[in-house]
Simulated scan of single mutants.
Amino acid sequence: MAANLTNTSSPVIAHEVDVGDLHYDSSVYCEVSACYRDQCTASREPVKRSSINRMAIQFEEDKLVIYEGQRPDKPLRGRLLVPPRLFCPANSRDTCHLSIVASLDTASQETKCLDGSTMQQMFRSPQTKRSLCSYPVQWGRDVEIEIEATVDMIKDGKKTSTVQIQLMIVVGSTTRLFDVARIPVEIRDAKSVGMCKSINDPHITTFDKR
């Protein structure tokens, strides 16, 4: 992003109206080069650049390990690196809406029950047990995504699911999605071991078909 500003006041301030459309994961910074007005070419100083701000949402974790029936020590936590309205088109910053969408993209790899239904190994939001959730975006407040692993009663070792996180920008009837992160989650068998007994017909098929 570049905006050429000429201002005789001090300090020189770049206002939001001076900034056009910005793209997700692009960089925003300022460059300043001072000179004397009547001898600018001959007196121009070297360019100085400000710190670089990324147009992005940054998540602290790049992977997680959780046990069945438990939650991780902390939720997936994301932080806005710039004010949220800057993600919106320049002419719609007062009317657009932003949210974070988290989903599982490994449903086809989930364990199948005997009746053919899917035994979901992990879900978003333990309160709703949904596999797809959206979270509001607010400046100065982290986005926290809670996850929990399901107890499937099968000793099937480690499994890996992926949490896909996207930024959703809605302007009127137009919706755009931007990929933010794909975080692998390793799911391990529950630490406790139980035993089932049956005092009747011994012809029983367990979940692991043994």
Rank of each mutant, 00 (worst) to 15 (best):
D38V: 02
E31A: 13
S33L: 03
E16Q: 11
E31M: 12
C30H: 01
E45Y: 02
S33W: 01
A34N: 11
D25C: 05
A14T: 14
E45T: 11
A14Y: 02
D18E: 14
I13Q: 13
Y36Q: 14
P11Q: 03
H23A: 08
Y29Q: 14
C40D: 09
T41V: 11
Y36N: 09
A42K: 02
S27G: 04
V19D: 00
E31Y: 03
Y36A: 13
E45P: 00
V17P: 01
D25E: 15
Y24V: 11
C40T: 05
V32W: 09
Y36I: 14
I13A: 07
A34I: 05
R37N: 10
A34H: 04
P11C: 04
S26F: 12
D18F: 02
S33G: 08
I13P: 03
P11N: 03
I13G: 05
V17H: 08
V32H: 09
Y36P: 00
G20V: 04
S43K: 03
R44D: 08
V19Y: 00
V19C: 02
Y29S: 15
H23K: 09
C30R: 00
S27R: 05
G20H: 02
L22A: 02
R37K: 07
D38G: 03
S33D: 07
S26W: 14
H15F: 08
V19A: 01
E16H: 04
D25Q: 13
P11A: 00
H23V: 10
A34L: 14
E45N: 08
S33F: 01
C40N: 09
P11F: 01
S27L: 10
D18M: 11
Y24F: 15
E31C: 11
E16Y: 04
